[in-house]
Amino acid sequence: MGDILGLVAKRLGMGLIILLVISIIIFFMVELLPGDIAQAVLGQGATPENLAALRKEMGLDQPAVLRYLHWLSGAVTLDFGNSIVTGASVAQTIGERFANTLFLAAYAAAIAVPISIVLGVLVALLRNSIFDRVANVATLTSISSPEFFLGYILILYLAVKTGMFPAIASLSNDMSFGDLLYRTFLPALTLVLVVTAHMMRMTRAAIINLLASPYIEMARLKGTPPWKVIVKHALPNAWAPIINVVALNLAYLITGVVLVEVVFVYPGIGQALVDAVSKRDFPVVQACCLIFAATFILLNLAADVGSILTNPRLRHPK
């Protein structure tokens, strides 16, 4: 077991280092601006007094490294400073939105993961049949479509024309959980369509890869029935690739969520990021980017750790 713990610790350490490097990138990219943030925010026409006041407020009179350390120590305690545009605390502005985004992603994942893994395994078993080919074309089409295309089609047919679901996913605090699920169904469905296609294809590839191994043929030649070949011989070895597929696609959800939130006017962190970028509200942009990147890294890390833990060769060292 010592081996495994060592490997896991190593991965965790790597993840932390990458996160640190990314925080440096995110923070210091803003330093590339000509002049400084204050200049960029207030534009060419700003008076020297205004500039000086804003600089003082943002602590720009201090050296960059000090400001970075200050920002980082704040970020660790979820304090990202104040928005330049509204003056409100960044953590408060995006905190609730982040929860909304996580809810939407979880909603989509809860539908997509089981469906796509089952379908992926099924298509792998029926490989080269007509269903496999139809599934191939369908998933390829779904992957190639931009999220807003799928989103608007769903709005057009399921909201505008038939009125089955609301087109705009507005949330309020006193909604029941069922109501919440109903109102956010369309954005979730859009995400499901994209992610399911990805996951199905990857699951299929992973399973087919596995079915070509000699030990699967051996199991068949031992007279093991087909379902048992899959369940007993393929699946225990398929966990690592499947975990990878799931984590990769959850990470993909995080990115896809930005466009979907804009289409459905969903009050999530993606909307906040897009607004902040167009208003050049740098503290918000930095905070959002850091949160997205951290989630992304965390998921990849989870996948790595998952595949280490399910690898029989590592679990039972010599």
Partner: peptide, 20 residues
Amino acid sequence: RGSRIAYVAQSAAASFNPAH
């Protein structure tokens, strides 16, 4: 298969399932 006719493969290392 397995009961009346059995098979021994070339590479035992690859033909044993690593998970069991």
